[in-house]
Structures are given as structure tokens and as C-alpha cells.
Design a protein around this nucleic acid. Structure first.
Lengths: 244, 244, 244, 244
DNA sequence: TATGAATGAGTGTTCATTCAT
DNA sequence: GATGAATGAACACTCATTCAT
């Protein structure tokens, strides 16, 4: 013992910076390799420290993943909080949420996959802070639906939670290939398509399910045209009758 | 020389039966414990054989899981094939698929979770037979939408693949807690709610989005409009003939 | 993975032989280095196998130590069982036990120390088979004392368990330096000295505490006194008859 | 810049007080958890300082244990020094030592066990101050025996060191269960029993081995009675002869 | 064909000790 | 003198897979 050749070099940093470094390194490694293929030693190396130091700030590897994911989520929510508050109109709000979620996946596909695969399937997921964050995040949709129903602009028989599930489930399925680095998706078009689809399911019968402010749909137009032609024809009839 | 008290019992069985036994045992163990907590030795024991024998029929543990899942899926599809063919009407067909998928999850929540977690996230998933089966299974929905659009019964601007994603994504999210043995769901009510939601998103504006049979279809309205236009055209023809 | 250069060489042996090899190797390593400085990998190497194989037969490192110690003890008891049965006379029997224990320590000082240090101080020691073996072994002394007391050969006020404790405690203290490879002790002389010391503590006052066979027992003295009293009584009787 | 809420509290204390605090804390922790389960950080916390400070006063963890044990021993010896000097008579002196040792074990079973297990088995134990203290402590017994032999009150063939080993070995074995918190022992009765046992082993043949000042043992009394009766009988004979 | 003993690579975690501040 | 963040060596145990019998 004690024949250490290399002098021990201690690099003291403020705890926050250390934690930040570690989480950044961990996020990268986890994203690149997935959870179980990521080694604590790799993460330490990337963070420029030794393995033991990680354990001063994180209980274990799982805790590290957990907190990386939480950090990511908090960041995600914070980045949209202000903007979301400024959005007016239900369609726009739904579209905003959907777009934002799709954009997050595009930005961090690896992390998205990790959360879905590793954390959400954990048996203790519901006891997790991540679960709460996720729930709050997703419940923005529930809230919109609930209020719309109360205001009478949405169908009263739509289960708000199911809308949430279909929105986020749909997004996940649609982007699954991308998260696995196999496919791609168009951000705007996908956001539009999903929003429209949900929108139509929410609006009551008879109401136009077109996006607010856009042109009414073909059947309406067809019927309207027919009606106008009929009126025209009536007038023609009258005219020809009156001008024999 | 061997002091083994229990004599080695060599049971030569037809390969098919062996494979069947192993897969049944594997399915049970995998379902109970998840993939990584399942031991080959446990599976062998449950199947009444030894570890080595498994490797005569399966390349490795992963392959075993793969084929268990495939078997499950084939079984699932076969069980619905005939009945599905007999269902008439788009709403009913959608409802059938959704109900059937929900019922499969209720029957085998462990296996469902396993497929979602372990297999679908595998980087080579798309090269998998399971992927093809899954795609064929899910494309029933795509097919219905595509045909409905072509027939003019559904909106022409609905992306069929997105409908598929929202249906299966929605089902997954809705039942995720159940798959983790934490929550429950009502089979019929959920199937109805999802089908209705999709249905409303598919039907054109102005058309009743109520379930078929209760209110006239858009075709009716289109036919009525066409008829009126035809009568109009007739009259215009007559009128122009009358005013030479 | 799978670029193994050296071909995997399996060397199949009957389980008993394997267990024997492992225990022999473990005994050597444990004896040489003590428990915590012994590495499973060292033991495996010495036994000519790999680490994993050890875990087929032993639950963990502790279990291995436990069973090595048990084996040693069983062997020790077996080797003395027959001979002990043939020894006659209390002094000889005590001497035999003491000698045998000292001889065991001389033969395996490392193992002796290990048992005392590692196993006997374990909080669960009393639930151990080793404890039972040890107790049976040590109770030979208790048994001798108990019987001697019952036969009136030993003082009635001697606590047999305390005799046992002083015998084995004394042996341990006397040989402690030797177990640590620092000192030595003379086998025969030490056995004699301890036996004599205990012997003297056991024999009633007035009785010669010399080893049996060399000097008369207390019974002799009691008999002599009784004889004298009887003769005296006779004389007193005669005298009183003569002086009516 | 540091967000530490609890401000670092620098308490400059006189070195002696510091050392005292640390040793007290260490003694508690060691006693509670044993050596290897005691963490330097725990000890530091209990002493109200940080780990680094310990290393200003103690070379390493082992040294800390060493010095804790030394302190305990010195304290133990000091507490008995004066009283021991006042005790008169060999039996009483032996009894005093034995009682005192038993009482120490009763007071600090955890520490006693620690010294036996951890320190006495250390390969460098003999180079230790603790060893010297221990030797001096135990040699009180040797001294008593030696003097007794020289004075002719004890058997000349008793090896004084062996007496010491049996006394302390016996005490240790007798109280081992108690040190492990599993059993109990009666202080006075045990001290008496051990002292008596040693006493009997020390006294020469023919001498009463009863405790000094108490009644001689039965054989002696029997013989004495017989002798007196004989003398009486002789006188009676003479008297009757002289008075015919 | 079936056996099942043997293989052996692989890694998260602990904690006494150091030393820059 | 005191701090306490950082160091980094050390190691038991698992289990999918192989292959001699």
C-alpha cells in the first residue's frame, strides 16, 4: 500500500457545479448507450472526476438516471410555461402542447426513450417525482378539455383523461421510430394532424370541426353551393315566367 | 461413481412438444418476473428439463423471448381473424379491433408490458418478425381508414397511419397502469370511448358523428345534395330550352 | 463480444471431489491470509477452477469459511472419538481432551485463530452448526466433572461449566501467541500442567491431589480414619464392660 | 457564492479537549457497531467535527481504536490500583483481580469484545502499548503466585503464567456470551467460583484448600476428631489401669 | 438427444485517507 | 487549525452460455 505513483489531485468545485457536471455527463452517456450499457466509470470520466465522487451526490446509478430525467422534465416544463400561458384559444393551446411535446422528443430522442423504457416501467414509478411532473404536464390537456366541456364548446360525453392518453400515446407511437433513430417525422405537420384529429373528436355534432377561422369544410360548401344554385334557379324560373 | 440420488431422467420428446413446453414455461416465467429477472434455469426447471436443452431449440434468451412474443401475437391474431372478417360497418370494425386489443391486454398484461418494454425498444426491432406481425395487426386500422377515405365516408385529410398511432398509443397509455398491476379499466366502456373518439375525428364536418345506424351518413347528405343539383341541372336545361 | 481467444476448457469432476478441492484450497488460503484478506479469486485459482464454480457449491464467502471450519472440527472430533472412548480414569480423560485440543492448535494454528476470531464472534454464532459441534466437544469436560461429582470423587461445589471454561479458556490464552506465529508451547508439558491444575481444583481437601496411582485417594484416608474410629469404639466398649 | 445554509462552524479547541471528544465519540461508536462497521464519518459527526480533523490527532482508524482501548485500560487499572494495594491476603487479592476484571467486562462488554477480537489478534499486537498494559495488568496474578510459591504457601510446581492464562482465559470464556449480548453472568458468584478453583489448584496437598479463615474441610475434621478420640481413649485406658 | 457442471466476463458501491482552501 | 469535497483502490457475486459426457 501507499506506493501511489501519481499524486492525488483534488479539484474542488462548488457542489452545484459538480452536480451539474455529473448530470450533464450522465445525460450524454445515458442517451448514447441506454441505461444498463452506461457505466458509472464512463460517466465519471466524462465529468472529469472519479467514480466515488458521483456517490457523494447521488445515491446510486438509478438515482442518477432519475434525477437526470427529472431535470430534463423540469427544464422542459419551465421552457413552455410562460409561452403556454400566453396562448389563447383551445385549439391553439392543444396545438401548443402537442407541438411542444413533439419538439422535446425531436430535441432529445434518446432521453425520451429512456424515460419511457426505463423509468415509466419501473414498478415504483408512481411514487416518483417524475411521475408527478409527468402528470402535471399531461394534465394540461385534461384541463383544457374539462373547461371546454364546462363551457359547452366541447362534447359533454368526452372523457378528458382519455383525450390525454390518446394525445400522448399517439405522439409516442408516432415518434417511436424516431426515438430509436430509425425514422423521422415532420414537426409542424404532425402537430397539426394530431391537434386536428383531437379537435374533431371534441367538437359537438353540427359544429364545424375545422380549425377556428378557416374555411368550412367541403360538405358544407357543397350544400351551400347547391342551395345558392337553387335560389338562382328559382329566380331564373321566376324571370322566365315573368318574361314570356 | 455418481452419488446423485435422483436418477437423471432422459425424456426424449418430439421436438415440437419440447419447444411448446419450453415456450409455455418461458411465457409464464417472463410474465411473472419480467425479462431480466427471469433465469434460464428457472424456465428450464418449470419446463422439466435442463438449461442446456433450451439451447438446442433457441439461440439464446433473447430469441426465446422473441419467439414467445411471436407465438402470443400469432395466437392473438388468429383468434380474431375469423370474427373480424364477419364484422360489417366501419364503426363496428374499429370497435372490434380496439376491443380485441384491450381484451388481449387484460388477458396478458405481463406479456403486453414485456413486448412494449423489451422488444419494441430493441434497436433491431424493425428487423423482427414480431414487428411485421405487429404492423399487420395494426394496419387493419389503417386499412379501414384508407378505404373509408377512398369511399368518401371519412375525411380525405385524415392520415391513416396517425389514426393507427393514436388508437394503439391511446390504448397503451390508457392501460399502462393496469399492465403494471396498479390500476384497472373497464373493457367495454373504454373500447366504446376510444372508438367514438376516433370515429368523430374521422367523420366529415356536418355529418353526424354518432355511431352508424342512429343517424344518416354523410353519403346520404352528399346524395341528397347531388340529387338536388341534378334536379337543378335538369331545370336549367329545361329553362334554357324554353328561352331560345 | 465473443472474440474469446482461448477455448473454453471444461473439466468435469464429481461434485464431492470438487467440493473437497475447493475446501482444501480455501482452508489453505484462509489459514495463510485470514478471512478478509483472502480473495475468492485466489481460492479459485488454487483449486484450479474459476470463481463462479465456487458459488455452485457455496452460498458465499462466509459460507465457505463456515464449512471449512465445520469440516475441520468434524475431522478433529472423529480423530479423537475412538481413542477417547478407550481412555480410563478421570485424570487420563481430562488429560486426553486437553492434549488433543492443544495438539489441534499446534497442527492448525491459523485455522484455530480463524475460528476464534471470525466465527465465534459472529453475532449468529449460536445458530451455527459449528457452535453445536464446539459445544459437544467441550462438554466432554463437563460430563467428566458431573459424573465425578456424582460419584463423590470430585468436590460437590465445583461448577462443571466453569471447569470447561477454564480449561478451554486457559488453553486458548496459553497458545494465543503460537496461533499468531509468535511463540511456541510444549505440548506434553502444557497438557500436564493444565490437567494437574484442574485436577487439584476438582479433588476434595485432604485427598491427595497427585495424579491417581501415585498416592492414595481420599477414600483411603477416610477408610483409615473410619477404621481407627471403629477400633476406638471397640476399645471403649471393652473398657466400659471392664468397669461396671 | 456557497449556498450552504449551515455556516461552517470553526471551533478552535485546546488539543486535549479535542482528542478527548474524539476518543469518547469513537469509544461509543466502536462499542455500538464494532470496528469495521464504524465509519470515521460517524465518529466525526458524533464528536461534532469533520473527518479531516480526526487525522490531525490520530494516524488512522486503527490508531484511533488502539488509543481508545489504551485509554480504557489505563482507566481500568487506575481505578483498581489503590484499592488493590489495600487488599491483604492472597485469596483476597486473587479474588479482587478476578472480580475487577469481571466487573470491567460487565461495564463495557462491547469494548471488551473489541479488544479481544480486533486488537489482540492483530499480528503486531505484541509491539503495542496495549499489550504492555495488558501484561502488567495480568501479571498481578503471576506476582501473587510467584510470591506465594516463594513463601511456601503455594505448591512449588505451579507455573505462575499458566495460572494467569487460566484465570483470564476462564473469565473470557465464561463471559463470552455476555460480551455478545446473548447471556448474562453473576458477578459475585462467578468471581468466587473462579477464585476458589484457582485457590485449590495452588494450595499444597494436605493444606486446607478452604478459603482462609473458614472452617477446615471435612476430612481434616474427621481425622482430627479421630485423633482426639484416640488420645482420649489412651487416657481412659491409663486411668482405668491406674484405678483398678 | 439430453445433461448439467463449469465457465468467466463484467461492475456498482464503499469508505479510509488526502489536501486545497 | 479546521474543513469536507475529492480520491481511487478494491472485490464479491451473477448467470447466460458452452461442451464433455
Amino acid at each position: 500500500m501507499a506506493q501511489r505513483t501519481t499524486r492525488r489531485q483534488v479539484n474542488r468545485l462548488p457542489p452545484e457545479k459538480r452536480v451539474q457536471d455529473i448530470m450533464m455527463a450522465a445525460r450524454e452517456i445515458f442517451t448514447e448507450k441506454g441505461y444498463s450499457d452506461s457505466l458509472i466509470s464512463d460517466i465519471a470520466e466524462r465529468a472529469g472526476i472519479v467514480e466515488g465522487t458521483i456517490y457523494r451526490f447521488f445515491t446510486n446509478k438509478r438515482d442518477l438516471l432519475q434525477r437526470v430525467a427529472e431535470g430534463w422534465f423540469v427544464e422542459m416544463m419551465a421552457s413552455s410555461e410562460a409561452a403556454f400561458g400566453a396562448v389563447r384559444g383551445d385549439w391553439n393551446r392543444l396545438r401548443f402542447i402537442i407541438y411542444h411535446h413533439l419538439a422535446s422528443i425531436r430535441r432529445d430522442p434518446g432521453l425520451s426513450r429512456l424515460v419511457i423504457q426505463e423509468l415509466r416501467s419501473d414498478p415504483r414509478y408512481r411514487e416518483t417525482r417524475l411521475f408527478q411532473l409527468h402528470r402535471d404536464y399531461a394534465n394540461r390537456v385534461v384541463e383544457i378539455v374539462r373547461r371546454g366541456v364546462a363551457a359547452g364548446v366541447f362534447r359533454p360525453d368526452v372523457p378528458p383523461a382519455l383525450v390525454r392518453d390518446m394525445v400522448f400515446g399517439g405522439i409516442e407511437h408516432r415518434t417511436w421510430a424516431f426515438m430509436r433513430r430509425e425514422g423521422d417525422f415532420e414537426l409542424d405537420a404532425t402537430a397539426d394532424a394530431i391537434t386536428d384529429m383531437v379537435w374533431r373528436a371534441l367538437r359537438p355534432d353540427g359544429a364545424s370541426t375545422d380549425r377556428p377561422g378557416e374555411h368550412p369544410y367541403v360538405t358544407d360548401r357543397l350544400e351551400a353551393a347547391a342551395a345558392r344554385l337553387e335560389r338562382l334557379a328559382d329566380r331564373l324560373d321566376t324571370a322566365s315566367d315573368a318574361n314570356p
